[in-house]
Design a protein around this nucleic acid. Sequence first.
DNA 1: ATGAAAGCGCTAACAT
DNA 2: ATGTTAGCGCTTTCAT
Lengths: 338, 338
Amino acid sequence: MSKNISIADIASALHLSKTTVSFILNGRAEEKRISDKVVKRVLAYVEEVGYRPNSLAKSLRTGKSNTIGLMVEDISGPFFASIARLIEDRAYENGYKIIYCSTDNNTAKTHDLIGMFRDRHVDGYIIAPPPGIENDIAELLKNDLPVILFDRYLPLIDTDHVIVDNQFGTYNATRHLIEQGYKNIAYITFASTQTQMTDRMLGYHKAIDEHKLKPNVKEIVFNRNDAEVIEPLTHFLQENKHLDAVLFGTDHIGTCGLKVINKLGLRVPNDLAVASFDDYSVFELYTCPVTAVAQPITAIADSIITLLLARLNAKTKAPVQKITLSTELIVRSSSKAK
Amino acid sequence: MSKNISIADIASALHLSKTTVSFILNGRAEEKRISDKVVKRVLAYVEEVGYRPNSLAKSLRTGKSNTIGLMVEDISGPFFASIARLIEDRAYENGYKIIYCSTDNNTAKTHDLIGMFRDRHVDGYIIAPPPGIENDIAELLKNDLPVILFDRYLPLIDTDHVIVDNQFGTYNATRHLIEQGYKNIAYITFASTQTQMTDRMLGYHKAIDEHKLKPNVKEIVFNRNDAEVIEPLTHFLQENKHLDAVLFGTDHIGTCGLKVINKLGLRVPNDLAVASFDDYSVFELYTCPVTAVAQPITAIADSIITLLLARLNAKTKAPVQKITLSTELIVRSSSKAK
DNA sequence: ATGAAAGCGCTAACAT
DNA sequence: ATGTTAGCGCTTTCAT
């Protein structure tokens, strides 16, 4: 009963050839003009013995694994976890499974991971690329493997990507703070040369410059560990008492920032107005609900998977698609007019 | 260059047989007394041409896929996302990849998913099982496939699992609320017959009974969609003004509960004290930081993967292991003494 | 110390 | 309308 039954077993049990069974199982009975009687017999038998095709063998033969490789920065973060969930749903609907990994934005690790995915003959790649991974991506593309980048892109690589308008996001948030009467607005972010972060930086500066204010940027070395973020942040806020507002560059930094604000006993927005890129429950439920630049998570995931499925099903090469989605500024009381 | 190179290519290029190459690549050169010279030549050539073994072929042949199937309720929730991340790290360290899926606690969906994982010849299963999935799990076990259940277990199935002491968790939290002077304590949870939820319910009742208080339980139909949770919750709180405290059964319900509390303008803890099972940033950063029953996420993930790896490496069958870890009550001001 | 060859389960080109 | 067979890339038994 438990011994795995193969197509050959079915064929011999039914006195047919593997070919016939294979065609029937792959829904090509009609096309191959296999008699209804035989089809019924095969299907009935398959049902009876609970035959399950070995997808490894199938993949080896066809070169298709029906697997999508998903590489995010950290699956445990709210943004990437939500994207992963939405992508998973759409992928499974279309017969694809997801194998995922967290890159930690580490180039060497990602390089290895891409190698593993290739060994597995993953059909398509969805990647939030770390810096310096250009060659690996180029190599995939050279081999005609579909790659969709998201969250950030690689300016030197001409491939599909789905991003949001990061620059406008921070520009708009900063301008909002200014309009609310704040003048000493700091931008606190992770030190990064990646597009999503440099664009956010640009947006901040643009708004600040337009209003002839003085920029104040604090860049923190990236660290998954909250404590390593909280410490420099604490110093920064202690040493910059003249600030009347801060804009955080990511959800992670925003969350840590709120912890620091609590620790220092600052009241929001009276002592310090706050806004952050990204949005999630923490910002909605914080002591003083936090104004946030919300990314359109569903639309992002949708665009990614739609793009990828199109590539996977395409016979011919379609032109590269670069999709930029809008963010939404969700105004809450943390940026109340001064 | 891009054409995939196989072991046969290497063999013929080097005038060796596939066997020799395979032995060397699998580190069995010593054992097979293959000359150092040949080994060096092969390794050098492999390096030079960038040979990558086809793991599909390998898996087909060996029956091992080096893949672990991870089935959680919803990968986008903070608890499961964190677990997934920790498991991923340990799995990759040990040469295993993760293929995941979200079950939505749906039995039929999970049944299909298990089937897919089996077709893929996943080596081991880590599952937060939905109700009614006993037969599928039993079937896996019958075929000697390692299965580790977590978060909840199936009383009728004798297999490894890792859970927390749910009953003591809610008991302790409820008792704490009572000791702080609260008398009308509601327990708000999802309607569920799963062990983790029934145990939590028991813990609440036990503490209430011990103190001869009147229990007040609100069970909500599970729904991923916040709005569907918030609505019944709103009604419940509106209609039970006499309550002076609530205990939420999960992070999700807790988060929704806080939104309702905000919407109704209730002040915590003066109008209503609050505590919740699970812990995450939202509870720490809420207007009034929320007392929480924290699960030991790292220890859970560690136990799961240690257990699974042991099974995967074991030659002989070890006895079933059932691990129960302790929760930690994190007292915050939402349950300040009355 | 190295090689030949079978076979994992499947698909598909090529018969008939 | 159905069968024969080669082969996907790998491991491993058995020979030499």
